[in-house]
């Protein structure tokens, strides 16, 4: 194991953060995922040595880092807003942490395509350029572990997609293990090999990102990864691989999870739910629930429609669909989704 960290941080009269992190391979990227206030940044700062542990241990490559100051950990830390020194030009920012800077600055600047920016001041750079310079400054020291705190959150949406794929490319290229804090599931899916979901100062689930997004094991994980409907339900009967659950005063069909549990959290992604005006029998979807529109709200490029089908079901549909179906509050509508779109989390684990 390259990194084994058991972190307990109790802030004076404040929150408590607990996390265990293992990184096995040299070039793997671990995502620390969760809503703000989950304790992700605290974990990162403990690994960096910027916060001391209340208890626990950090072992990296056989060295005990628990009491070692940040300067001697050979950790590269990318700050959320990059923290480029405003009184130094880009060249001196990149050279700041290295002794024999001749050639090394040019080399890392070349890799991150910031060579043309070396004589500029940080205030003259765009957000994406600042991020590349900050990454260059961090990589120039050849750290053995990279810690990235929300590396993309300071960027506007248009830049973010571009910088994200570039960051993925660089991180895979340098072959240094990295831990990336984010609350954006696109970052997690694009960058991560492994993922650790935190909420309220605890780790809820660990695993490959795809697995966590498709099969969250906790109600809080489901909510954190953007599953719009998370609601308790109870299995009424099972037939031919299908489980029928009572949810509120409605019934839905889901793939039978097996086992003896009957109480589950029912998780349904909003974009898996279609809305129709009448009952469309030609659809292969198992669930056709009649309901009334309880609320309509904009959600980015889509519209979020909450339908009361005996429980509050969230559907994400296009604006065009809202207009075509003449959806208004109180209108009758059918919510349609496949049994396989329903993910069940055993309620006993809560």
């Amino acid at each position: 194991m390259l990194l084994t960290a058991d972190i307990v941080k109790q802030f004076d009269g404040g929150p408590r953060v607990e996390a265990s992190i293992q990184i096995a391979g040299a070039a793997s990227i671990m995502i620390l995922f969760g809503p703000s206030g989950a304790g992700k940044t605290t974990v990162l700062r403990c690994l960096a040595g910027l916060e001391s542990l209340t208890s626990g241990r950090i072992i990296f490559d056989g060295e005990d880092w628990t009491e070692i100051p940040p300067q001697r950990r050979s950790v590269g830390y990318l700050f959320q807003d990059y923290a480029l020194f405003p009184h130094l030009r880009v060249r001196d920012n990149i050279a700041y942490g290295i002794k024999h800077s001749h050639g090394a600055v040019e080399q890392v600047a070349e890799m991150l395509r910031v060579r043309d920016l070396l004589d500029r001041w940080p205030s003259e750079l765009s957000g994406g350029q600042q991020q590349r310079v900050a990454l260059a400054r961090t990589l120039a020291r050849k750290p053995r572990l990279l810690l990235l705190d929300e590396p993309l959150s300071a960027l506007d949406a248009a830049t973010r997609d571009h910088v994200r794929s570039e960051l993925a490319h660089v991180l895979r290229g340098v072959g240094i293990p990295a831990i990336v804090v984010t609350h954006d599931w696109v970052d997690a899916l694009t960058l991560g090999d492994q993922m650790l979901v935190m909420s309220g100062g605890r780790v809820l689930q660990t695993g490959p990102p795809e697995e966590i997004f498709t099969r969250p094991q906790h109600r809080e994980v489901a909510a954190a990864v953007g599953v719009e409907t998370v609601i308790p339900g109870r299995i009424q009967r099972r037939e031919a691989g299908i489980a029928v659950l009572q949810v509120g005063s409605g019934q839905i069909a889901a793939a039978d999870p097996g086992g003896a549990d009957v109480d589950f959290y029912v998780c349904i992604r909003g974009d898996d739910v279609a809305l129709e005006k009448g009952r469309a029998d030609q659809s292969s979807a198992r669930n056709h629930l009649r309901g009334t529109v309880a609320e309509i709200a904009a959600a980015g490029i889509l519209t979020k429609v909450i339908v009361d089908v005996g429980f509050q079901l969230v559907a994400l549909v296009t604006r065009q669909a809202v207009a075509d179906l003449e959806l208004t509050k109180g209108a009758e509508v059918f919510a349609v989704f496949k049994a396989s779109a329903v993910h069940l989390i055993p309620n006993a684990r809560m």
Binding site: L50, P69, F79, A83, F85, Y96, G97, R141
Partner: peptide, 15 residues
Amino acid sequence: VDRKYIEASWMLGVS
């Protein structure tokens, strides 16, 4: 002085 600059300096190995 913004603390992040001080911490950034530490993380770059400077005493």
